[in-house]
Each structure stands twice: as C-alpha cells, then as structure tokens.
Design a protein around this nucleic acid. Structure first.
Length: 556
RNA sequence: GCGCCCAUAGUUCAAUGGACAGAACGUUAGGUUCCGGACCUAGAGGCUAGAGGUUCGAGUCCUCUUGGGCGCACCA
C-alpha cells in the first residue's frame, strides 16, 4: 500500500534526523486536492514548540540543537523525501504539514493492481492466522426482534466481514437468553391471555403474545408457565433468526444460556473464580467480589439464595468459553443499556486469566422511535415497538442496512417509520447502487464493440493506463485505492460506519467520471484503459457493498 | 445521588487532535440529438447547545452549565 510505503519512508528519515522516535508517523489522505494526495503532520508532532516556551524545551532542539520550528523541521524532512520515486512534488504548508503530490503514473498503474486482486481487492493479511469472535444481536427472546435490537445486526455482521477482509478467521455468534424469570413471565402472560384475560393487563402486552397464545396454549391442555415460556422462547428465537436471515445475517453458532447451566459450565466457571478468592457468600447468596477499588460497592450476585444462577453467572461461563480456544479478538456488540455490564465482564475476563486487551465491547445507542412527532422508547413489555420485520418489509434489506450502518454506533437514532418509508427512495444506498448498475451497463455494452476484447477474468486486462489523464479519471482512481486503507483502519478501530461514507464518495466519483468521460466509442486504446478503470471501480464498489452486506445490482 | 452516551446546514448523517467543518436529501438556477436523468454543474444555507480551560491547532481532550437517552436488582 502506497500509504504504508510513504509512512515507512518518512519514519526512516525521521529516525535519521532525530534518532529513534517511538511515536507513530501519521500519513493520511488530504481533505483538499490543493494539499496534494497524502499529508503528514510528523513535523508538528516532533516539535511541540510552543510560543513562549524556551527553544531548549523542544524535542528536536534537544536532539539536534538546530531546528527552531515545526516549519523549519518540515522543510529539512521534505528535502530528504523529495526524491522518492512516487513523489511528483512535496510542499511544506501551514504550520508544518508536508504534503505529498503523487505522480500520475503511480496512480494509473494502480488500476491494474486492482484488477489483479479482484474480489480480494481491499483485503489485507494483518490478521492472518488469527481468530476473532463477534457476538451480536443476542436479543431477549421474550418478543419479536424490534428495530432497536436489530441495530446490532448490521453493525456486528459488517464488522465481522471487515475482520475477515483483515485476515481474521471470524465466528459470528449469538447468545440466546432462554433462562430466567422473564421466560416464566412470558409463559404466564400467554396462559392468561389464552384463558381470556385482557392483553393490556399482562406483563408482556405485545400483540405477539396473543399470537403465541393461539399457537401453543391449547385449552384443556395441562400447562405451566415454564413449559409454555420455554416453547414460546424457542419459537421467538426461530423468528428472530429468520428476521436476521432476511437482513442477510447468518450466525455460525448459537449459544443457549440454559446449556451453560445444564452442562455444569457455569458451576465450573464460578469454582475457578472461587479458587482465586473472588467469590464470597453473603446473605445466603454467592457474590462475585474482586479485590478491586472499582468493585467495592458493586459486587454482583452470581448464585441466588434459591440456588439458581444469575444471568451474570452464565455470562461468566460464556466468556470463559469464548476465550477457551485462544482467540485473538473477542467482540461483543451490545445495546447501550448493557453498559453497566461491561466493567464486570472485563473484571471477570481478567480474573479468569484471559487477556482483557483482546476483549472489545461495541455499544450502540438505543433506537427511539417517533410516532406523530412524539418520541417513544421501544419496549417489549409495554408492547410499543417497531419490529425489524416491519421495517424490512417496507424499505428492504439494503436500505435498512445502509441506514443503520450510516450511523456511528454512539449516536442516537430517532426513527420515524412513516418518514423512513416516505424517504426510503432518498436513501443514499440507491445513489451507490445506481453507480454499480451504471457500470454494469457500460461493461455489457462494451462487449459488443467490434475488435475490442474485454477481459473476462480480473488480471487478464492490460491497457495503457497512462491514457487516464483527466482529473475525473485520476480522482476516481484515488477513491478506489482508498478501500485497502479504510479496511486497514477499520480492522483496528472497528468503525464500520465509515464504509457507507466511502461507498458514497466512490459512487460520487464514478458519476462525475461518467458525465465527463465517454467510454464506449472512444479510440480503442483509450476505451480499453477506461473500461479497465470502470472495471476497477466495479471491483471496489462491489467489494465495499459485500462488506456492508448490501447487494450490488446489475440493473435497477 | 453516582456512572455511561449524545447535541454539528432546513432534514438525515460524516469529519484516527490538523489546514477554509463535508456529503446526501430538500431548496434556487442551469445541463447531455451521444455509454441508464435514480445522474451532473453552480449557488444559498453553520458562533459545531452555552461558558471557561489545555494545545502550535479543539466539533473532537478537560471542567462547569443546559437539554435529551440509558444504566446503577438475589431482572435478563
């Protein structure tokens, strides 16, 4: 990757000038073409030169004794880098940025690289041989999957895909909370309703309770709340997984909470903690009590005084299992209402001698929904929620996934279904998909050009890429080549929502290219090069959409 | 009371501490007898909720204020 090449070259020169520097050299794309293609702020980083501070306090001065400012240091550094083969010119600008203008021919050659890599373009091998686990959705099975829980679906799924592109072997997993009072309560509600009680008087008031009542609770049959609840929860899990499937999500493994109790894994995990002296008995119950300042007043019950295990206890066993086969990365995607749970999990993972630094939690904020301009919290108990299925039926998988993945998980979503349906045609996903369809149209037409062989396989196309000289073409190449950089960044930051922005940028560049550069009908050399460029764009776009789990249509 | 998250164009969202805060939609004015007009070009639109602070440099970090969401169970 060119960016890494530049980074290495800068780092080498920096080391030569100031001796070993342990800071990270940052090379990034510029915000404006007038700043070139890449920029580095390393000179600013290396000379924390503050006005009013004596020169002697600056790092570079200490080392070399000669540079007085970031600007001056940048000039010296730039002078040593200006002869790199990919450099067209270097500029030192502002307070001390070094701006890299890359030779056109370097960009032009990239097209061939993209075609060669094909469906692998954008991927890297950083995580090669490493294992990652991503748990997401894990919705409470006491009701249908609502749009709030559903948010974790595309986030977790797309993240898993990116990690695969990053080289990891990834397991997508789902935790099924089929245990506890909630299941019995759901069973009670179902039984009550089937006996003719009013829905709105029940603990769970959603209409699905009515449906479940007519499905499983036959009058006259001997029933208890637990068995009915169990049955209901199984049905609901099936429905939830079906909804996930409709969103394009498939799990590799489902872990029912009950299995951890039945198999003795929960007991085992608690014993492990007990051996370390982190368990204590108090008021008839068993508590997780680490000797930690943080946990002083927030010790947690793992075994209730009635002898049953808490959710947390089973989660301890689950996380112990997650770390058992030595994964390199364990990610939980949770709704933000579980944030209080996170420090406890971290404490437990550490206590079980697992490497906490490999454990990451992505919290997404709750989706609130608006009805008639009024905000309501989604709640299964009160029965006020929009199901994932409803939204899916109205806007479809692609728009739904794009919509969710546009957001930083940390931001709240206020969702108005009526507005979303009305505005679904405005969803940027169509802007992106249209670009792909347009490309396919050009490519299928180009097949009919007499005397022009269109390479059917990536890599088999050769052309004189140096004919791609307009700003539209170069701009497009520069967008295409951002994908591997982005995948690399997301592999470390987990910020999957950046992919949607990238997809829009790339589509934008394609549309502008299309308006200004003809492909079919140009002289053969140029046509061939432009077809290659269009194919490379298709590759980048299709790979991006695949990571997002969104279809790349040939026609719209 | 304690803790976590959020506040950015009319709207929906972006912006690893970097340069003049960007897109899309909407809006105003234009565009291709030619590869798909679900497109393109140009314009208007912002004290980044408010006040301090740190920094060469703050939407981003720190403190406080305001307004919202969420969590602090022998629930899951």
């Amino acid at each position: 990757m060119l960016r890494e090449q530049i980074r290495d070259d800068i780092a080498k020169e920096v080391d030569r000038i100031v001796g070993k520097w342990d800071g990270r050299v940052e090379v990034m794309r510029t915000s404006d073409a007038k700043f070139g293609d890449y920029t580095t702020n390393v000179a600013l980083r290396l000379t924390p030169f503050a006005q009013g501070k004596p020169l002697e306090e600056t790092k570079v001065f200490k080392i070399s004794g000669s540079y007085q400012s970031s600007l001056e240091f940048a000039r010296v550094l730039a002078d040593r880098l200006k002869d790199q083969p990919y450099v067209e010119k270097l500029e030192v600008a502002g307070p001390g940025f070094i701006n890299f203008f890359i030779k056109s021919e370097v960009w032009q050659k990239e097209v061939e690289e993209v075609l060669k890599k094909g469906s692998k373009f954008g991927s890297n091998t950083t995580g090669k041989g490493k294992k990652a686990r991503v748990e997401f959705v894990s919705a409470n099975p006491t009701g249908p999957l609502h749009f709030g829980n559903a948010r974790g679906g595309p986030i977790g799924d797309a993240l898993a895909s990116v990690l695969e592109f990053y080289g990891y072997k990834v397991i997508r997993e789902y935790y099924h909370n089929d245990v506890g009072g909630q299941v019995r309560k759901l069973g009670e509600a179902i039984i009550n309703v089937s006996k003719g009680q009013r829905l709105e008087d029940q603990e769970y008031k959603g209409e699905y309770v009515q449906d479940l009542a007519s499905n499983i609770s036959k009058p006259g049959l001997k029933v208890n709340a637990k068995t009915i609840g169990d049955k209901a929860v199984d049905i609901l899990l099936e429905e939830i997984l079906k909804d996930c499937g409709a969103m394009g999500i498939k799990f590799d493994e489902i872990f029912p909470e009950s299995k951890f109790i039945e198999s003795g894994k929960t007991e085992e995990a608690i014993k492990k903690l007990d051996k370390k002296g982190l368990i204590k008995d108090q008021e008839g119950a068993t508590w997780f009590a680490p000797n930690d300042e943080f946990f002083k007043d927030r010790e947690t019950v793992v075994k209730k005084s009635d002898g049953s295990y808490t959710y947390f206890a089973n989660d301890i066993a689950y996380h112990d299992l997650k770390f058992k086969d030595g994964p390199d990365l364990v990610i939980d995607v949770f709704g933000a209402n579980h944030h209080g749970h996170v420090p406890r999990l971290q404490a437990v993972i550490g206590a079980l001698d697992h490497d906490v630094s490999k454990f990451h939690v992505i919290l997404y904020q709750w989706v609130r929904f608006k009805r008639g301009g009024e905000l309501m919290a989604m709640s299964k108990r009160s029965g006020t929620f929009v199901t994932a299925r409803e939204v899916l039926d109205e806007v479809g998988k692609d728009a739904l996934r794009f919509f969710i993945l546009m957001y930083d998980p940390n931001s709240d979503i206020d969702f108005d279904l009526a507005l979303a349906i009305k505005k679904s045609k405005d969803n940027p996903v169509y802007y992106v998909q249209y670009a792909h369809a347009r490309i396919c149209s050009i490519l299928s037409k180009s097949v009919h050009e007499p005397g022009l062989k269109i390479p059917s396989k990536p890599g088999s196309g050769k052309a004189n890429w140096q004919l791609l000289t307009t700003n539209y073409e170069l701009e497009l190449i520069k967008q295409i080549t951002r994908l591997p950089e982005l995948v690399s960044d997301i592999g470390a930051s987990f910020a999957v929502h950046r992919l949607t922005g990238y997809a829009t940028d790339l589509a934008d560049s394609l549309h502008r290219f299309y308006e200004n550069c003809r492909v079919i009908g140009e002289k053969e050399d140029l046509m061939r090069a432009r077809i290659g460029l269009v194919m490379a764009t298709k590759t980048a776009l299709a790979n991006t959409l695949k990571l997002l789990g969104i279809t790349a249509p040939e026609k719209m």
